[in-house]
Design a binder for these strands. Structure first.
Lengths: 204, 204
DNA sequence: AAAATAGTTGACTGGTTAGTTTATGCGGGT
DNA sequence: ACCCGCATAAACTAACCAGTCAACTATTTT
């Protein structure tokens, strides 16, 4: 069979699925292997440790999503509409996952990151790095919106941090309360936080 | 010795400390007992399970903090100043804990809640209940601020949810990045989210 | 075809986990 | 003085955990 193997990918996929739905701590290497249809030997052939697998899984997830993020936050789209589309997209994705597993799962970076941050440097640094990349999309959309006079944001980085925190806080609450509704109208909350006049979003 | 025993309290204290600093999953019953100076037999005499102990620990922590919250959010204090004081208080507490354990710990309700929410109904419901109580402080302060014309918030409950999410998102990020700085100037971010004119906070 | 390479397998280790059991101590009520 | 019930103690179970290892197979290179 060998030559090229997709076990590595199957392992990172399985790990992310299980950790996102449950948690880092309750996801055992055995369970990851079972879902990936791999044996433990293969696991430790490809990865040094559970931490490293997790870091790889998060990076892989990021790479899967990057193209999509680039499209959603394309400079060809009016800046505030980018947020609209992004929040809709995440909402729909989480709704789909809820259909599969019965729970609102929130953001894996936040749940996993917050769980391991004081104990696992490898995973923590990975989460940190990816969050930094994500926030850049917010920042440039906000800068564009400010330049077009749609919002007042002389410090786009600060505004991006605020909106980012607000969104992730909402995602965390949605997970804890298993309530998708909190995300349904986040668009409006975002516009409120950004200080956009309703008229700036759609022509009224 | 018997008659009244403080083991129960020692157990909930130890559990909260360990789970806050590390996580629910990595905090073993053995470790809790050791820190509390109790034996496992006592643990399972007082509590049915680790879940129940955790729920009790969170409730106990809430009760410890309630008087303080009532004071910070006293109606005798100008509404926006309540937030100022509250954010300062949390900042100082987390700074103190960082001094002890080297990490910014964030909000235990959020980290523990997000970790166990899909798997542990007992703990999840407890977290949910306490978060609901906490948000009420925000809500009434916002309502008062609106009534006094300090901010524009026709829907205080929605505004409270937004600010609450934003704050918890920031706390989570502070934990993940181990960065207290994110919390140092949250007061200003809060005022921005609330839409308060700078002049409304302190007389300029 | 032989050797080097890339990947796979399953059995194993030693330590840890949540939770149980059984026996025992100590104090207050009668 | 005696007993009852709250509380403690230590030893125990059985499952599970992350990680190891040496033998094995299939492919590619030479």
């Amino acid at each position: 069979m060998p030559r090229v193997s997709d076990v590595k990918k199957r392992l990172t996929d399985a790990a992310l699925d299980l950790m996102w739905e449950n948690s880092y701590g309750t996801t055992s290497v055995d369970a990851i292997c079972e879902r990936a249809g791999a044996k433990k030997g293969s696991f430790y052939y490809f990865f040094k440790s559970k931490s490293e697998l997790t870091a790889a899984a998060l990076e892989a997830e990021w790479n899967k999503n990057k193209a999509n993020m680039d499209a959603l936050f394309s400079p060809t789209i009016p800046p505030l509409e980018r947020f609209d589309r992004y929040f809709d997209h995440v909402h729909d994705r989480l709704a789909g996952l809820q259909h599969e597993c019965g729970s609102i799962l929130g953001c894996p970076l936040l749940s996993i990151g917050s769980e391991v941050s004081t104990q696992d440097k490898i995973v923590r640094d990975t989460v940190d790095r990816i969050l930094d990349r994500k926030i850049k999309y917010f920042e440039s959309a906000i800068r564009d919106a400010h330049a077009q006079g749609l919002i007042e944001a002389p410090d786009p980085q600060a505004k991006a941090k605020t909106l980012f925190a607000c969104y992730h806080g909402t995602l965390a609450q949605a997970r804890i309360q298993n309530d998708l509704e909190l995300l349904r109208n986040f668009k409006e909350i975002a516009m409120d936080v950004l200080g956009a006049k309703p008229a700036a979003i759609t022509s009224t």
